[in-house]
Design a protein around this nucleic acid. Structure first.
Lengths: 359, 359
DNA sequence: ATTAGCACTCGTAGGGTAAGAGTGCCAGCA
DNA sequence: TGCTGGCACTCTTACCCTACGAGTGCTAAT
């Protein structure tokens, strides 16, 4: 059923007002503030219809109206207009992204913090990591019983590890190790590193001291680490400021659920096509979030990898502003990480394209 | 003033009971449960004295007694006996530490999570990092416009960065860079890397493409990162389960305070000599924590560095159990990180001593 | 020194009432 | 036919009052 123009305006007014105040909104308020030149009685009739249509509901007979999930959905899909960010807001985001450039490894979780700060809701940030392989090994000989393993992965991340030995090794041996590993251990996934492979490598270079095993263990470690996704929650405390989470039990339920990285990761599935996704109340799969809404934005992490930042709040969330801020941050993050877009030049590095690979 | 044996027993009983129930405890309860063979009236007299001595207080005239900060202090110093951990508990801790060995870089914050899980209070974990210098640089030539910078720091941490260039460099140039950096940029702190030094290095090798600046920027980045401490909070949601934080405003105040790494770091100062420190209520410097207690345990992170794990809870905290658990965890962590103690062998690595340096 | 008894205090829970906000509906008007 | 003012009704919230009970402090007796 199509909504009349006036119904739309009224619905939007209810949602806007409820978002701002968290109180059920009455006909009088709307009559005064919505710009419609009609009386509260007329509004009441419209409200009654919107209620039977399922877009609004009443907590009890003599209370004002509150949007239903369906009502929010219409609002998000048709009625809301993406808020323009103020000059200061875009500047704050830009500044944070720029600052954080220096330490890209913490970028993602820091951006989570930024999102939490900007929106005043708890925010989540995650990266999706694909299974990868080692592209090349380098061994740096430090002294007679110390060397550094450096491995460059298929996604161009670089990992290293310092190894102290309780015995001496010759530089030539280190070089030999390097050669063998580059021959046998590159281009294979974690699962393919078998004990068999290790022992055959051991034999081929006459390693009796377990060096091969050490390096292989390192390879397994970093490959499994790359596979695992990283998800963080920032600003959980912000939940407690919201009237709908004054009940500590509710707040605890939600916050506890979100503290588990596993849950964060299962929130959306990465399977949405749009850059922005809004999950309203019962649209969430998790029981714990049936009374909350989630807004997610995808960003491009370079090398074809994607990540998600998002915000969790009550269904009465300020969808338009939050969505605008998230998109802007996600956008900036994409530019920083993938180097595309380039209108925000990387400060201090001139024309060079830098990728920090310290994880 | 010295406390009589009976007063001590009564004080301990009050604290124990209050810790367990969070309710003011009355004379009758103690008469029945404390094993003292006296009537409640006698207890009442003793309670009255303990109250005037400042170890107990009454929320109001006709309520039971609640320990004061001073009372807790006596309890912690003299009365409580360190809880023995159960077999399962020590096993859980050991297992977690063992599991985490594979990914030492996340160890510290994971141990925070462990502490939160084991104690059911929010836990914090931090490392103290000393200002350091670069010990050696290595540049790995990958292809004509890509190389990897590897830097080993004075504390033996190893950092790396992948650099993509928009132009070609010859392998000989990379080698030259490596030599110059090892000569001029090792052994100096972040502050000592001046524009002057950079430009003189640039001239000495005829670098017109800004390569020197890139590597110098990297050096500055990792040195400043090393200096900055890392502090995380885990399990903040657990606060909400405690009766003293049913008031969302209180919970918010504390949680918000703890969300800031800066604050965590200023909690104790690292300046305590003992391995275990208990800060009770008003003993905390921060206004926000005047109603809470903090238990901190130091661990040894190897190479002379120390870290802290801790737990935050209400003054009515289960000091004995929490202290026992924290000490045990800190101990295990020291062994894992510094390799000393050695009774828990590092699984899978035989006799080799491994240090993961990916931060 | 300990105890039993008792009057007293004070917070909390329960119930009853008044106020206020908002509705639904009806009758009148354009 | 659609809009509006008016009015009775509903329901929640805040407030006050009271009764109850837990726990105390004191006194007199052992």
């Amino acid at each position: 059923m199509e909504l009349s123009e006036r119904k739309k305006k009224i619905l939007a007014a209810v949602v806007d007002e409820y978002i701002a105040t968290a109180e059920p909104v009455g006909s009088k308020h709307i009559a005064e503030k919505s710009g419609l030149e009609v009386s509260s009685a007329t509004i009441r009739n419209e409200l009654a219809e919107l209620t039977t249509m399922g877009y609004l509901q009443q907590p009890h007979t003599s209370a004002g109206r509150v949007p239903t999930a369906q009502g929010y959905r219409i609002y998000v899909n048709e009625l809301m207009q993406l808020q323009k960010l103020s000059e200061e807001e875009t500047q704050e985001i830009n500044r944070t992204l720029d600052d954080r450039l220096r330490q890209l490894d913490r970028l993602v979780s820091d951006v989570g913090k930024l999102a939490a700060e900007m929106t005043n809701y708890p925010a989540l940030a995650m990266t999706a990591k694909a299974p990868s392989t080692v592209k090349r090994f380098d061994l740096i000989y430090v002294d007679s019983n110390t060397f550094i393993i450096v491995a460059m992965l298929s996604d161009n991340a670089v990992k290293n590890k310092l190894v102290h030995l309780p015995f001496s090794v010759e530089q030539s041996m280190v070089q030999k190790l390097s050669t063998v590993f580059n021959a046998s251990f590159t281009g294979i996934t974690e699962e393919q590193i078998s004990p068999l492979l290790i022992s055959s490598a051991e034999r081929s270079m006459g390693d009796t001291m377990g060096l091969t095993a050490v390096i292989a263990a390192f390879a397994i470690e970093i490959l499994s680490e790359e596979k695992a996704a990283q998800a963080t929650l920032s600003g959980g405390a912000k939940l407690l400021q919201l009237p709908e989470f004054r009940d500590p039990d509710k707040a605890h339920k939600v916050m506890n659920y979100l503290s588990d990285a596993e849950h964060l990761y299962n929130l959306p599935g990465m399977d949405f096509g749009d850059d922005l996704k809004v999950l309203i109340g019962p649209e969430n799969i998790a029981e714990e979030l049936k009374d909350s809404s989630v807004i997610l934005a995808k960003y491009n992490a370079g090398d074809g990898m994607q990540g998600i930042i998002g915000v969790v709040g009550p269904t009465r969330m300020d969808y338009s502003t939050v969505a605008a801020k998230l998109s802007y941050i996600a956008d900036g993050l994409s530019k920083v990480l993938s180097g595309s877009g380039g209108d925000k030049a990387l400060p201090g590095f001139g024309k060079l394209m830098i990728k920090d690979t310290n994880e």
